[in-house]
Design a protein around this nucleic acid. Sequence first.
DNA 1: ATGGCCATGTAAGATGTTACATGATTTA
DNA 2: TAAATCATGTAACATCTTACATGGCCAT
Lengths: 184, 184
Amino acid sequence: MRKLSELEGAALGIIARAQPLTPYQLRKYFAISPNPHWSASAGSIYPLVERLEAARLVRAEEHATGERVGWKYSITVTGRKRLRTWILGGDTVKVIGLPDLLRVRVAMMPVLPPAEQRQFIALMEQKLRETLAITRADVARKQQEGDPLNLLISRGALLQTEARLHWIHEVQATLFGVQVQPAP
Amino acid sequence: MRKLSELEGAALGIIARAQPLTPYQLRKYFAISPNPHWSASAGSIYPLVERLEAARLVRAEEHATGERVGWKYSITVTGRKRLRTWILGGDTVKVIGLPDLLRVRVAMMPVLPPAEQRQFIALMEQKLRETLAITRADVARKQQEGDPLNLLISRGALLQTEARLHWIHEVQATLFGVQVQPAP
DNA sequence: ATGGCCATGTAAGATGTTACATGATTTA
DNA sequence: TAAATCATGTAACATCTTACATGGCCAT
């Protein structure tokens, strides 16, 4: 296996933390993530874990519930080593950069008539607000649970969302002269 | 053409704002972007513009410099319409969500020995600082140039980077007890 | 028992990446 | 004029997506 893709690395990392698990459980981990940038469909996950197994990065143990047979996967020593080099050896430019699909669209505002510009930005602002509420709730939950790392991850999402919401208000103020009511 | 991909939409948007331009110029737009999340290699761009042309979203005019012959592309009316529906009709969940490769790696810190954890986070902190400096400079330049939209886009990148740097300091403080010197 | 969700896949297809190739143009 | 870089591609390849297929399990 040449080089771990982003999805493969993430999957291997999840397996490392929550092993042993089935491909289906793995999919759920991606699905419930507050930031679902991967569809993590069956068509990607099942072949993926097979690739990982073929490369001996994970190991499968049979797992039967009633009539149905499945496989639970755990990370191997090789896999753990591979995961470490993947984390450390990635292209830092890619890791640091972050693709913001919203910003790309805002940069294209001139192709929209003004009414549609406002409408679009207003919609995005609302969605960001919703995301903010969800993320705050997530932070609160993680605070209860007590795992400092999990809390940090949620905090990261929260800080990002706050920054984006602040930014979209700048956009509204600059482009439309809209003044935003102060935060509660 | 079924549906514009993210790269296709971005390309079409650039063409709309800077037409007419050659595929090579288009590649450069992606390359000089402060956030290069696409390689925008020849192998992606040349077929891409051909797809756009086949779908009549752009139109090509010949363009000769000396011996060499090339094509410059401009957006069509159809293309403009298509671009608008692409902006407005995208999956809002995907547009709002943002994939943070750094956060994914930080979530995997437990698989690293403590020394490597510190080393990795320190490296990322440094890279973020560098990015911050570049982004600040970019904002200053855009401020000089006077285009409010371009300035906003740069501001967006700046706010994001500041948020991430702040976050990575939280990570250092929480995981390693490192106190960060106050910003200048 | 039947309709719906759980769980495991497979097939076809498009998109984007890396690596290669090639001639034109500029620069030392 | 030789070397570097500009500019335009092409080929092979891997990955991921969407859509489909299938059978077990569970609640009504």
